[in-house]
Amino acid sequence: MTAETLLDLTGRTIIVAGAGGGGMGTILTRLVASAGATVIAVDNSRASLEEHVQSLRSEGLSIVPVQADIGTEQGVEEIMVRALAEPDDLFGLVTIVGGVPDAYWGAATEVTREGWQWLFAYNLDSMFFLTQAVARELRARRLPGSLVSIASISGLTATPFHIGYGAAKAAVLSVVKTMALELAADNIRVNSVAPGAIATPTAGLGPDKERDRWAVPMARQGRAEEVASSVLYLLSDMAGYMTGQCLVVDGGVSVKWSHLDAENCPAYARDRSFLDRWRRE
């Protein structure tokens, strides 16, 4: 058995929800399709979806565009009808839809009921009900599968000033673990990927080398391709014995001790010889 064989998704239909933004979803769609899968590319924006799907199809990839709102019952139904119409068996799902608008940043004491409910609907409800629909079909048809949700390191740690987003992403991680246990006997794997700061057209983080050097142990923002490759791994047979897990793709942010300085040296260290060895001066 070779690595190429293990990564081969030929004969499998995989839904990518959030495929048309030109960032992580579009890059993931290309990667999954290039591994041989038929990709049901879902986005709420027809114009954006058509633009990117046309580009991907010009590369000879099997992409089926579906304009739908995964946050609605009708949208989920439209996605499932289209996915099940494909000759290849339904196998996978990746839910990428999520985020927090600038208007909903603020201290916990300032969060409105409307904002809280919107963040949970957008980041948790849409992910859960589409994942549920795919899981139901896989189980009813006795098909194996791999379901992957994009979470966030905000769901792993405290998230000052966007508590609703962090709480919703923590709930995503909980849903993934519970569904993984419930579906394990059906050979349906459920996992997640938790990105840190990733440079994409919609991320809203401009270049700032000094900030990234201080905040990220690897001293840079991540690339969408680095998240997409982790998702591909979880979809593939390479991760055939993994379920209920979260792959963290954050350049080391989530494991960085808060008492480290900009060079990841303990801020309270005073021994000159130690500091010189650490900084290789």
Rank of each mutant, 00 (worst) to 15 (best):
A19P: 15
C246V: 15
L49M: 09
G18K: 02
L275W: 00
E4M: 05
V39N: 01
T2R: 15
V175N: 00
T5M: 13
V249F: 01
Y122A: 00
N264F: 05
D88K: 11
G99I: 03
F129S: 00
S174W: 12
V249I: 12
A85D: 05
P195W: 13
P195D: 04
P87L: 07
D43Y: 08
N191M: 05
G71N: 14
S62Q: 14
M24K: 12
A107K: 09
T72D: 02
D271A: 04
I14H: 10
L205Y: 12
Q117E: 14
I27G: 04
E59P: 13
G222T: 15
T202A: 07
F129M: 03
G115Q: 07
S154D: 13
A194P: 12
A167C: 07
A108D: 06
L49C: 13
R12K: 15
W118N: 05
G204W: 10
T5A: 11
P201E: 06
Q54T: 15
G21W: 03
V193I: 12
L6T: 05
V64D: 04
S149M: 15
A19I: 15
E137G: 02
I96K: 04
S126T: 15
G240T: 14
R280A: 11
R189Y: 13
V66N: 03
G23P: 03
R113G: 01
D208W: 12
W278M: 02
I27T: 05
E73G: 02
M24Q: 15
A103P: 15
M80F: 12
S258V: 09
R12E: 04
F274A: 01
V227C: 05
A17E: 02
W257S: 11
M1P: 06
A180H: 07
A185Y: 08
V16S: 00
V248Q: 11
A107E: 12
R189K: 15
I96W: 05
I188D: 08
R46A: 11
I15W: 04
A85C: 02
I150L: 14
I79N: 07
V227Q: 08
V76S: 09
A171I: 07
V42P: 04
S58A: 14
F120C: 03
T243Y: 08
N44R: 14
L232V: 01
M218K: 11
W116C: 02
L260Y: 09
I70Y: 07
D237Q: 09
Y104Q: 12
A135M: 01
N187G: 07
L93H: 04
T95M: 02
S62P: 10
G20A: 00
V249L: 03
L56I: 11
P201T: 07
Y165L: 06
E77S: 04
G75F: 14
P101V: 14
A262G: 05
Y122N: 11
G155A: 00
L9A: 10
V94S: 07
E51I: 11
